[in-house]
């Protein structure tokens, strides 16, 4: 969910910064509202994963420079105001009925003064949106790669992979939400290139593990004949990446492909990719007992 929100922030901010709202209305106007909703769902699950739930607020009583998770906790807090400002700029065009209700609740004068301020600084907000989106998108990958005790995670490529995967899933969501055929095709074609990049990065990730020391080579065993082989190669790589990549290419070549299949597969594949990486990483260890 964090990756998806990161992708939303990056894409919406890019469209705003480059004044491409007319060409990409779904990304520009509709996606920003989905950001905090999806992020909150993700944070709810993070909360559920805490063993000492009553102490969740302790994250925000300290900033530990050596702890990637501490950086992440504060980055997550940055996302909400930035995403909120993007919503303020775009909501009336994306979800006019909801915007009207919100305006009534907040007060028309307040809403308009905030909106005017946000629109005046839209360039800066979009710039910060891209930066925060990149930080959020890379965060989980960097967090995992910083755990030297888990050889499978200990790769600098995880951050970029998580970022590309997040933007790819955001494009898939935009393709699902879009009601215009041409716009949807543009998203799918962009997603085709992002999936290509993700496949290449994933390949490089595995190559770097294989060409490293014995410990790292052993860490790949779980997906190379071990317990997670089928999950990784069939569900993540084939159904989550390669198959939608193929469908998007065939769609570009003019074949009649049902439009929802590829985006749904990308979204499910992105989610399952994270699950498999987390599980495989946790069982890779320095002490084999």
């Amino acid at each position: 969910m964090g990756g998806l929100t990161a992708g939303i922030l990056i894409l919406s901010s890019l469209a705003l910064l480059r004044r491409k709202e007319a060409a990409f209305p779904t990304i520009s106007y509709k996606l920003p509202l989905w950001g905090p909703v999806l992020l909150s769902v993700g944070m709810f699950f993070l909360f559920l994963d805490l063993e000492y739930k009553a102490h969740f607020w302790r994250f925000y009583t300290a900033f530990r420079i050596t702890s990637v998770m501490s950086w992440g906790a504060w980055i997550l807090l940055l996302v909400y105001p930035v995403n909120g400002l993007l919503i303020l700029i775009t909501l009336e065009k994306g979800y006019p009925r909801f915007a009207k209700k919100l305006m009534e609740w907040i007060g028309e004068q307040n809403w308009q003064s905030w909106q005017q301020w946000a629109q005046k600084h839209s360039g800066r907000i979009a710039g910060v949106g891209i930066l925060v989106g990149i930080l959020l998108g890379m965060y989980t990958g960097i967090l995992l790669s910083a755990f030297g005790a888990r050889p499978f995670w200990n790769s600098a490529l995880l951050g970029p992979i998580f970022l590309v995967s997040g933007v790819s899933t955001a494009l898939a969501l935009a393709a699902l939400l879009s009601s215009q055929n041409e716009e949807r095709k543009a998203y799918e074609w962009s997603d085709f290139w992002l999936i290509s990049l993700e496949l290449a990065l994933l390949g490089l990730f595995l190559i770097t593990l294989f060409s490293s020391s014995a410990l790292y080579q052993q860490s790949v065993n779980s997906i190379m004949g071990g317990k997670w082989t089928l999950d990784f190669w069939l569900l993540v790589v084939f159904f989550g990446l390669f198959f939608p990549w193929l469908l998007e290419m065939l769609g570009r070549m003019g074949k009649n492909i049902p439009p929802a299949i590829a985006p749904i597969l990308v979204l499910l594949g992105g989610l399952y990719f994270r699950y498999v990486i987390l599980e495989v990483g946790q069982i890779s260890t320095w002490i084999p007992y």
Partner: peptide, 16 residues
Amino acid sequence: ELCTGCKACIAACPYD
């Protein structure tokens, strides 16, 4: 009293 049970330390320890 400071621990949230996030398990980052568990993942970070090579000796489990």
